[in-house]
């Protein structure tokens, strides 16, 4: 699945397969979707990975294994069913929360919501990832299944603008209530001012020369 490139980075260095190490050749580097990067040669997988994949097969979840961690990509329509099965039948008692990731180049699924689940009974971890397009940033709320997600979903809404439908009170949590925009999105600027230090001027971090 490494071929699922979602964009290009053009910078000075970091390009393989070319003799030009000066960096001035207008080099570009393919940007992979991190969430779909998988270890080569681990499928078909054995043990409890298989057990989980079978149990979630009805949701058409797509499994990715990377660095020994198992991720299921679930369509948002099937998210709640998947979480319900994971909690009730596969004993993932604890949800460690949801974290958002914004992939502006991943057409049609720019916003990802990533859930980390922990089964204390079997001492296993699994990651459930779902996505929503920027134009329709809706994901069903899982607070009814994992009440701990209350604040986590509010934070993800606050930072990424993902609307969790059915959340009991989806308001901003970290930023002020009247704040415009969602700061963790990639199109939201970092901000900052140049700083003078020992006679030299240091530009704000987002305007410095970038290598990646």
């Amino acid at each position: 699945m490494n071929d699922q490139n979602i964009g290009q980075n053009s910078g000075m260095f970091g390009v393989e397969d070319t003799g030009d190490t000066s960096g001035y050749g207008g080099l570009t580097r393919q940007q992979a979707t991190p969430s779909r990067t998988s270890d080569v040669g681990v499928q078909p997988y054995g043990g409890w990975f298989k057990e989980l994949a079978d149990a979630l097969a009805f949701t058409e979840a797509e499994a990715v294994i990377h660095r020994g961690e198992l991720t299921f990509h679930v369509r948002r329509e099937r998210l709640l069913e998947a979480l319900q099965v994971l909690r009730d039948e596969l004993r993932f008692e604890l949800c460690s929360g949801v974290s958002g990731v914004h992939y502006p180049a991943d057409q049609g699924k720019e916003l990802h919501a990533v859930y980390h689940l922990l089964s204390m009974t079997y001492n296993r971890r699994v990651r459930i990832e779902t996505s929503a397009p920027d134009a329709d940033p809706h994901v069903p709320s899982a607070v009814a299944i994992y009440p701990t997600l209350d604040w986590h979903e509010r934070e993800t809404y606050d930072m990424f603008g993902i609307v969790f439908d059915g959340h009991p009170g989806l308001t901003r949590i970290l930023m002020p209530d009247d704040w415009p925009g969602h700061p963790q999105r990639k199109d939201y600027p970092l901000g900052g001012i140049p700083v003078e230090y020992k006679g030299a001027t240091i530009p704000p971090p987002d305007t410095r020369r970038s290598y990646s």
Binding site: N9, Q31, A32, S99, V101, S210, S212
Partner: peptide, 10 residues
């Protein structure tokens, strides 16, 4: 999360 660059993606 890394996209393969010199800085964290997230």
């Amino acid at each position: 999360v890394s996209d393969g660059g010199t800085k964290p993606y997230r």
